[in-house]
Design a protein around this nucleic acid. Structure first.
Lengths: 223, 223
DNA sequence: CTCCACAGTGAGGAAATTATGAACATTGCA
DNA sequence: TGCAATGTTCATAATTTCCTCACTGTGGAG
């Protein structure tokens, strides 16, 4: 899912792009002109900005130039035919790509995907880590360390722990856990959860205290 | 000055591009089809390859795929109208951009400049050699040394190892591996991965320990 | 204090997953 | 074309993990 800013003064173009992008599961904000675009781009982190060249108040190139002063957000330009000079100009400004009107939303989204992919591929995935005293959980490498020592959890134990931690301080019913960790199609014994909780607790050593039993309800990871 | 390889079966297109590029001070080689392009791309380091999609003997996509196995040379595709699906396909293959025929040489050169600029500016030389004890991996020369001795890996084994190492300490699912190493269009058996992991491990000798099995998930290179 | 519904535990067979070897298919090349 | 190397599939073996179940422990309502 990307966060996309669509900037165009024509309502129907914004609408078409927004619809298509949301259909693909992205989140879309809109702006009507360059000034508004600058404002919005500064206040939020977009994965990409799709912007028209010709707009009232402030054109796309100037807006791009201004935005680039503070953010490296990739920009895909929409331009009318016969603006070749401007295109060249655009690349120098650091525009990532442009599409000539009229375009198909499909083509635009294909380019959006290409650009964002290119942009994010370069950064080496910061590992996601949670720490609670000597209990360290690394979601990226799928490691759990207890006082510096690597715990040897089974797949279900990992899944269960990860789910509990991702939802820390939230009361989780047995049903919820079964559904989320075991899958909606699991129709097994309730004791199954208890058993895995037991194993998990054993594996967590002194940090078993974080897993709290909620009598009559389920469990909770309390941090 | 860039070193450019122009690949197209139509003489006049090659000629026009060559002329324009040389006018801008670049050095241009030519190839008439995919096979020839692969050959030339392997024997020289181009800053960019401009390649037609439709060609006799071997099409542009296949050639691109093949070239990308050994080199990271950026590729700009030339395609005829009405190949929208292929465009999408192209981006997934790692094509950097494409231009739809008929195009103006000026537009093509603008994109060439943008791509080469992007490629040389954005990449702060990711370390091309990785070492783990006596296991040395050279991404550039595609060599693997084990205690100073060169390992004789098959192409797939290289690909797999390189991908694992490039994503070291990240839990990789089987699907992810299939998608990234085999390609999204591979619809084969999951056990295929296991087999290659096995061979890779055998080839790594004492350093097989770096490849960790994540039961229920996939594998990980743990350094 | 007693009861009892609910939680914790231990163990073994069932089930799932991975490792491996070999057959088979494909590719590249002489 | 035929050989050699590589890649894929598949059946089987080797592991590991999961689940069930009977039993024990326990908190708190009454």
């Amino acid at each position: 899912m990307y966060k996309i800013l669509v900037v165009d003064d024509e309502d129907n173009i914004r609408e078409v792009l927004k619809e298509y992008a949301e259909f693909e599961g992205h989140e879309v904000d809109e702006a009507c002109d360059g000034m508004q675009a600058i404002e919005m781009a500064k206040n939020a982190d977009y994965d990409i900005i799709i912007m028209d060249v010709m707009m009232p108040r402030l054109d796309g190139y100037s807006a791009c130039k201004e935005i680039r002063k503070t953010k490296q957000t990739p920009v895909l330009m929409l331009s009318a035919r016969g603006e070749e000079y401007d295109k060249l100009f655009g690349f120098e400004l650091g525009i990532d790509d442009y599409v000539v009107k009229p375009f198909s939303p499909k083509e635009v989204m294909a380019r959006v995907n290409a650009i964002v992919k290119r942009n994010t591929a370069a950064s080496p995935t910061p590992s996601e880590v949670e720490k609670f005293e000597g209990l360290e959980i690394n979601f990226t490498s799928r490691d759990v360390f207890i006082d510096g020592e690597k715990a040897n959890l089974t797949p279900k134990e990992y899944d269960l722990l990860f789910y509990l931690v991702r939802n820390k301080n939230i009361a989780l019913t047995r049903n919820k856990l079964l559904e989320e960790v075991w899958g909606y199609d699991f129709f097994g014994d309730d004791r199954t959860i208890d058993t895995h909780i037991k194993m998990l607790r054993n594996n967590l050593g002194p940090y078993r205290k974080y897993i709290v039993t909620l009598r009559g309800l389920g469990y909770k990871f309390e941090a």
